[in-house]
């Protein structure tokens, strides 16, 4: 049986799909069998971020309509052993699949994988219902911006009313230097507001964009990067290992900020 985890945010453009691609890769790197399901019908992108777009032949819709078997629709990532993708259809609308069908697909996949990650579409309509239906755990991705936090709270409310067993928070695109100048809400602020446990903080980094340009998740890169390490840490925490949080402020340290921190006036 696999752990089914939905990655959701409410607001679009906060980095859900990027997190899904990287986190899925990082969990597979731990030696787990992982299946990523793109639940964003009509606007699929997970294949593109994984660099698998040329290898998609069938989609989840073809499997459901009986045009192919479920196994045939799944794309194996050759670079990362254990990583699989079940692509969404690009040409159909979001209502092409029902929550019952989604549940059926996940139940069929469940015996073959350790982890199933469902990349949820933005919004709280049908696509959201489909994505959460079979999940026992949810990861909420938000950025330190008012609109993203507000929408994240809406989603947390909906998940709580659906009795989701575990809801944890990933803060994406944090800019420590802005938090230090009190020009961005901090991770602690977001936790105060949303009142859900944290599982990871991913700093803003231009390498996220360059890696998506190449279709190579950042965690695959041999060069160490803060966001790559942050996501690898999330993978470990998901798998039950306690990993300390990276000191994202360290790279910004000046004598002044160190003195400020010493006296307790920190952005933390």
């Amino acid at each position: 049986m696999s752990r089914v985890i939905v990655i959701t945010s409410g607001k679009g453009g906060v980095g859900k799909t990027t997190i899904t691609a990287n986190l899925g890769t990082a969990v597979a790197q731990l030696g787990k069998k992982v299946c990523l399901i793109d639940a964003d019908f009509g606007l699929r992108n997970l294949d593109l971020l994984l660099g698998l777009e040329q290898r998609v032949v069938y989609t989840i819709i073809d499997a459901l309509s009986g045009e192919c078997t479920l196994e045939k629709a799944i794309v194996k990532d050759k670079r990362t052993p254990g990583l699989h993708l079940l692509p969404a259809a690009q040409n159909r609308t979001k209502d092409a699949i029902t929550p019952e069908q989604m549940k059926e697909v996940i139940e069929q996949l469940s015996p073959n994988f350790d982890y199933i990650f469902v990349d949820c579409p933005a919004g709280i309509e049908m696509g959201f219902r489909n994505a959460i239906v079979a999940a026992q755990e949810a990861l909420i991705v938000t950025t330190p911006e008012v609109a993203a936090v507000r929408d994240a709270d809406r989603v947390v409310g909906l998940l709580e009313s659906e009795n989701m067993k575990s809801i944890r928070l990933i803060v994406n695109r944090l800019r420590p230097e802005m938090v230090q100048m009190d020009e961005m809400i901090s991770v602690e602020d977001i936790m105060d507001l949303l009142v859900i446990p944290l599982i990871g903080i991913v700093p803003d980094d231009k390498r996220i964009i360059t890696s998506s340009n190449r279709g190579e998740p950042l965690v695959l890169s041999e060069e160490e990067s803060l966001p790559g390490m942050a996501i690898k840490n999330i993978a470990q925490r998901l798998d039950g290992v306690e990993v300390p949080y990276l000191d994202l402020m360290a790279s910004q340290d000046t004598l002044f900020t160190r003195i400020r921190r010493f006296f307790g006036f920190s952005g933390k």
Partner: peptide, 19 residues
Amino acid sequence: KKSRYRAKNRLQLVLAHDR
């Protein structure tokens, strides 16, 4: 006057209403 505190205060209000 820092935008961080403005953001947090505004969110506190709007979330209370949303909830």
